[in-house]
Each structure stands twice: as structure tokens, then as C-alpha cells.
């Protein structure tokens, strides 16, 4: 018996997949990919480098952990090439927690992504925090059953990533700095560009697609929905409960916290406080309570002191 195939928001999106690609997944698979991101709403995803940190993150109320070899602050300090983590470490983390496990692969490195999928990673982050493997192209994410999250500095970049099959977006901040200014700038940019598209007449959409460098079909979808068609988290530079609340008030669906937790004085207390602040983002009474006496924040780097060639956010736009 035929089912009641009513189109949902996410399902419409699957129509933009590459029609020449026989491996392109069906609408159902797209719904499952976007669906997991929808389950993460209002939550905090924490960077962890081993099973012990993963357990602390889970115990503090993280909705997922991001397994990586070095947190962005250390990648920045150590320099060199930053790559996908050792599969053994990812497997250890998967075994140690019951919440979803994410892991990063380099931009354009489809073989690293295939390895992550094989390991059973729940979400891959094709991330500018690692050293890019391809300076021109991102991974064709429609080829994978595993969902992807990608970073974006503006609406055009977000929609190019969704066009390639990303089922979740994170607005880029400057990772590993503890300075929230770029996360704020990019989230505000995306929301103001979204508002503009929603208020446009249909005649204007094709030219706007050209200006943004974004798929036209996705602009139609944004106008219909009144928002981005996938879940959008903030990432990069979030170091305090108040930073998380600020990003939520700007309108993101949740936050990634990288170096901000395990590079701080009391990571357990800080992790819990950031989780509470993300939920109660519009309640200053609770924010004041959870911000109290949580130890030293990560030291941080003022972004204005960072030359543009050292800024991770400029990679893979």
C-alpha cells in the first residue's frame, strides 16, 4: 500500500541533490540526517580528546561530543598539519559514551570521511579547523549515509555546503581563541541575509542567488520556510556561559564548545554551567547563578591581534 508521501521541509531539499549521482540518497535518508541535528537543538556539543573527557562531557549534559586529537587552541599553538584523529581514539570514545559521537575530517578529504563512516561516527564535521586537503572543492556529502555538519561565515557559504549535502550548519567563529567576536559577526551576518531573502519578491531571488553564490532552489526554500532549512549551531570562541546565552539570543539552535571547556580551570563546572546557560539563555537570573564561581576561563587570544592568514575561518569558503 502506498504511503501518504507528504513532503516535509527537509524532504524538498533532497530534490537538489546531484541527479547524475546514482549513489545519491533518497529523501528518507536526508530526513534521518537532518533529523539527528534536530534532536540536538538547544544543546551543547563539546570537543573531547579522549574517553575520559568524553565521559565528563556526557556527565555534564552535552548532547554530543566531537572527537579530535587536539583541541583548536593546541592546533593553533603546535602548528603543523592537523588531520583526522586516530581511529583507535575515536573507537574508544564511541565505546565510552551513549550520546552521539562526531568527528572531524579535513575539507575535501573524502577518504577520511569514508573512514569515519566505517567507524560508526554519528556526524562528520568537514572542518576548517583541520588543515584543508583540497583548496577548491568540498566533499560531495550526498555520497554518504553518515550526516555532515559544515562551517559557514555567511549565507552563501552555508547554502553551498547544504547544496553539497550538509545536513547541519555551524556558523564559524575563530576556533581556539576564546574570543566570541567572530562567532557573533558571522551569526549576525547569516541572520540578516536570511531576513533579506525572506522579504524578497520571487523576481529578486535568482539575482540574489547569483550574488550569494548559492543554489537558487535553496533560496526558494528559505523564502517558503522563513529560516535556514537545516539546524544551525554557533561554533568557535565560545568560552563562558554568557557567550553561549549570547549566541542563543542571536538565534542559533545550539552551540559547539571547543577549547573553552577543557582548557579552562574547572572543566566539569564550566561544562555544566554552559549546558544550563544554553537552555535558559533568556533567563538572566539563572545565567547569573550558573556563571558564578566556575573557575578560570581559557586564557584566549584577542582576534584583532591575529593576522588574517592565521585565521581558520578563511579556509574553504
Amino acid at each position: 500500500m502506498a504511503t501518504s508521501k507528504q513532503k516535509t521541509d527537509l524532504e524538498n531539499l533532497a530534490n537538489i541533490k546531484d541527479i547524475n549521482n546514482s549513489k545519491a540518497p533518497d529523501a528518507g535518508s536526508w530526513r534521518l540526517k537532518g533529523g539527528l541535528a534536530q534532536m540536538l537543538r538547544g544543546g551543547v556539543i563539546m570537543d573531547v580528546v579522549n574517553a575520559e573527557e568524553a565521559k565528563i562531557a556526557e556527565g555534564s549534559g552535552a548532547v554530543a561530543v566531537m572527537a579530535l586529537e587536539r583541541v583548536p587552541a593546541d592546533i593553533r599553538k603546535d602548528g603543523g598539519v592537523a588531520r583526522m584523529s586516530d581511529p583507535k581514539m575515536i573507537k574508544d570514545i564511541i565505546k565510552s559514551v551513549s550520546i552521539p559521537v562526531m568527528a572531524k575530517c579535513r575539507i575535501g578529504h573524502l577518504a577520511e570521511a569514508q573512514i569515519l563512516q566505517e567507524l560508526g561516527v554519528d556526524y562528520a564535521d568537514e572542518s576548517e579547523v583541520l588543515t584543508p586537503a583540497d583548496n577548491n572543492f568540498h566533499i560531495n556529502k550526498w555520497d554518504f549515509e553518515m550526516p555532515f555538519v559544515c562551517g559557514a561565515t555567511d549565507l552563501g557559504e552555508a547554502l553551498r555546503r547544504i547544496g553539497e549535502g550538509s545536513a547541519m550548519i555551524r556558523t564559524k567563529g575563530e576556533a581556539g581563541t576564546g574570543d566570541v567576536v567572530q562567532a557573533v559577526y558571522h551569526a549576525r551576518t547569516v541572520f540578516s541575509q536570511l531576513k533579506k531573502v525572506v522579504s524578497m519578491s520571487n523576481e529578486e531571488l535568482m539575482t540574489e542567488a547569483k550574488n550569494l553564490g548559492a543554489p537558487y532552489e535553496l533560496l526558494i526554500e528559505i523564502k517558503r520556510l522563513g529560516r535556514l532549512p537545516v539546524v544551525n549551531f554557533a561554533a568557535g570562541g565560545i568560552a563562558t556561559p554568557a557567550d553561549a546565552a549570547l549566541m542563543m539570543q542571536i538565534g542559533v539552535d545550539g552551540v559547539f564548545v571547543g577549547s573553552g571547556i577543557f582548557k579552562s580551570g574547572d572543566s566539569k563546572k564550566r561544562a555544566k554551567a554552559i549546558v544550563e546557560a544554553t537552555t535558559h539563555y533568556d533567563n538572566p537570573d539563572i545565567l547569573a547563578k550558573v556563571s558564578e564561581d566556575i573557575g578560570e576561563p581559557m586564557v584566549g587570544i584577542n582576534i584583532s591581534s591575529l593576522p588574517s592568514q592565521e585565521r581558520l575561518e578563511n579556509r574553504g569558503v
Binding site: T3, S4, R31, L32, L36, I94, P100, Q117, D122
Partner: peptide, 29 residues
């Protein structure tokens, strides 16, 4: 997480409350 990880998430048509029309049930982890 009875069914496994995200890669094992699935969609199945079920019968809800003996309705004749199937319900598309989305199971995610």
C-alpha cells in the same frame, strides 16, 4: 539506542491505532 548508531536509523510504515492509512514512522537512534 536499541537499534544502534545513527547509520542504523530508519523509516518504516506502521499502522497507528488501526487506521487504514499507514503512518511514516521516523526512528533516529
Amino acid at each position: 539506542n536499541y537499534y544502534g548508531r545513527q547509520i542504523d536509523s530508519f523509516i518504516e510504515n506502521i499502522q497507528f491505532n488501526s487506521d487504514e492509512k499507514f503512518f511514516e514512522a521516523v526512528f533516529i537512534r
